[in-house]
Design a protein around this nucleic acid. Structure first.
Lengths: 234, 234
DNA sequence: CGCGATTTGGGAAACGATTCACAAGCGCGT
DNA sequence: ACGCGCTTGTGAATCGTTTCCCAAATCGCG
């Protein structure tokens, strides 16, 4: 076994690999679907198919949470849902702040998927005076100047950054100084943060570029002349 | 070398690992920044720091594209930019369709990052009669019924799906049937597609859940009572 | 009450990605 | 012209993830 780093003294909880954590969210969503279909148990195979992964991988993923399956039967939908939710820390209420109420920020503020999966946007912040004071989806947009105060008042630990790239690092620094320890970054910049802070970035243009790569490859990798022209713009 | 699977007969192009492809987009963006600062060459170390990765990894990544660096000097910014862009297939114009002009879809339609990094939304499609006929960012919203026609007319191979989860698979099937071979999916469902089609999913709520997991872990993994002794038995 | 069908859990192998470490190549200064 | 310092490119080691595979556990049935 030689478990390396076990959090606290909890006996059951082992270290959950990062790749597994990323998939747990999917499993949780799929499980909700099964629950709505009034299923009480699911086999690893059913779940795996619905989640689009290999069943062996799914079982290994779940085994990191403990032994909640029943051999010969499968997993109890309710129990498993609960265990995954607890592992993901979804049983604790977490307030989220969204910084930058532009195009994308406004969409995220109203994104139903956040609310339906247990996240509440507790605060909207922006620097544009014409936006400050307005409300979006019932949430008032506050002055970025009050960032520190809002983070403290609302007990915020997670922030979503949808500011222009130019100010993202500065905002990030202020968030971290104010006590935020997790950041979801939509600005196309690499944020520098201290080690105790987690950053996940979502780079929308990069996603398209990755797809573009595969398109390129599918098209027979056309005789790529080592030559060179290519008009590349910013 | 024993290269296993090389596409076509192209001698220079090796197989680029998936993980590398995902980072190339970042390198490209960072390089643009260097170019704006009038830098003509960069060392792997400078680039790596700016991209937030290890310099050895960056060099290995670039080595998959060929040998474009100069020992003792570094990489020529212009040359490298061009090579990465070509590898990502960005020298070919690709039309993108966006399906589902809701909250998120509208934001993406106007997202400056797409345009600035070479992608043009060629078509917007939606099922809501009140939206059809309106224009967003100068792009007319067309009836989803005309999906097949639009994909053919505009020569679209990449689609962005921002529809409600309930109809995402159906739309996906139609897109694939119409000839789309790459899909960027924002709907929280696992899309089933034939092998020749690439799907990348962006699950916004999942991102927050992953951050939540880390928050949970940082908070000393509070005495998570393994209790509930898990009397596993419906 | 035991047997066969089923399904989990996990050891071990295979695979892929990252990091390490250094030889080879290049430019500059003398 | 030559050596020195710098930086790339890459083999080898390491690390993490996925897949394979099967023993152990459970249920239903005769």
């Amino acid at each position: 076994m030689t478990v390396q780093r076990d959090t606290a003294g909890a006996a059951g909880a082992r270290v959950v690999p990062e790749a597994t954590v990323a998939r747990l969210a999917t499993y949780l969503r799929v499980l909700t679907g099964f629950a709505e279909d009034a299923a009480t148990t699911v086999s690893s195979d059913e779940l795996a198919v619905a989640a689009g992964v290999n069943s062996a991988m799914l079982r290994k993923d779940l085994s990191f949470l403990g032994s909640y399956g029943i051999r010969g039967v499968g997993y109890d939908v309710a129990t498993l849902t609960e265990e995954i939710a607890r592992t993901l820390g979804l049983t604790v209420h977490r307030s989220v702040a969204l910084i930058g109420v532009g195009n994308l920020g406004q969409a995220l503020a109203g994104y139903a998927g956040f609310a339906s999966r247990g996240f509440r946007i507790a605060a909207l912040l922006d620097a544009d005076p014409s936006r400050i004071g307005t409300t979006i989806q019932g949430i008032p947009v506050r002055d970025i100047a009050r960032l520190e105060q809002v983070v403290a008042d609302e007990n915020i630990t997670i922030a979503v950054v949808t500011t222009p790239a130019t100010v993202a690092q500065e905002i990030c620094d202020r968030l971290v100084a104010a006590g935020v320890t997790s950041i979801l970054n939509f600005a196309p910049v690499v944020l520098a943060v201290p080690g105790h802070v987690d950053v996940r970035k979502v780079d929308l243009a990069a996603e398209l570029q990755i797809l573009s790569f595969h398109e390129n490859r599918k098209n027979g990798a056309l005789s790529v002349e080592p030559a060179a022209e290519a008009v590349v713009q910013a």
